[in-house]
Amino acid sequence: MPLLSFTHRPQNELEKEGRMAAPIQEDAGEPEKTCPNCRKPIPLSRLWANHNTCPCGYHFRMTARQRIHFITDKDSFFELFCGIKAADPLNFPGYTQKMETVCAASGEVEAVVCGIAAIGGYDCCIFVMESYFMMGSMGTAVGEKITSLFEFAQQNRLPVIGYTVSGGARMQEGILSLMQMAKTSGAVKRHSDAGLLYIPVLTDPTTGGVTASFAMEGDIILAEPRATIGFAGARIVEQTTRKPLPRGFQTAEFLLEHGFVDAIVPRHTQKSVLTKLLKMHHPMRGTA
């Protein structure tokens, strides 16, 4: 399975560190991050050049803008619906203040970035959820942006690529958050019924209301290696069932084994895989 060979295996003695895109000059005093998997320090510039993955194969989290930068063609991304942001419909205690802090810290106004872009020369609509914004939780604004994107894609007959990261529905918008699951599902369904392609890419973590709506409604569902994907949180499952969780429970590999994702695609091959898929589903594809 070529898609699964994500570890950078050295081919010969000269490539002990694994295959890298290009040798990178490292300063002695450069900040480093320690990989939680192999426990080795990795300089930030090198991490960045390697799509935020460690040579051991561990995928660090990325911001939505970083992802857009690495997955879309240079200068092709045009942001849509960026003016939509959450109100406080329930007057939920502390929500407005929390939003202000989160906006300032993340530099985003909502937990998803939507737009049109080209990937490998193929036009598509793309949404990328932001884990640094209230853990990508879905409130009315996120639901509205994703729904609007699917409607836009349907009108313009474009495929949709969607990177999901989410802790679930946003509690602070109560029942209105829950309704976003139905609303986005309706838009996905209409887009799908129009014969158009939708590929969600599930990244760490994709849980709750997002898993139970548009994350699982793709034609082809891809996932990043080792990403946590599930409906109920693992801790809650453990508390409720009082049973030890199986090894690798709710990982992308677990879902692949049980038949709920089509393929696990490591980050450095995502662009080429998406390009191929967009090419295969392009209306101007070749004839036999």
Binding site: T211, A215, T240, F254
Partner: peptide, 15 residues
């Protein structure tokens, strides 16, 4: 909320 329910795709079924 359970191990089996997750393994059988609770999220996918609802979606």
């Amino acid at each position: 909320c359970g191990i089996e329910a997750e393994a059988h795709g609770q999220g996918q079924a609802i979606a």
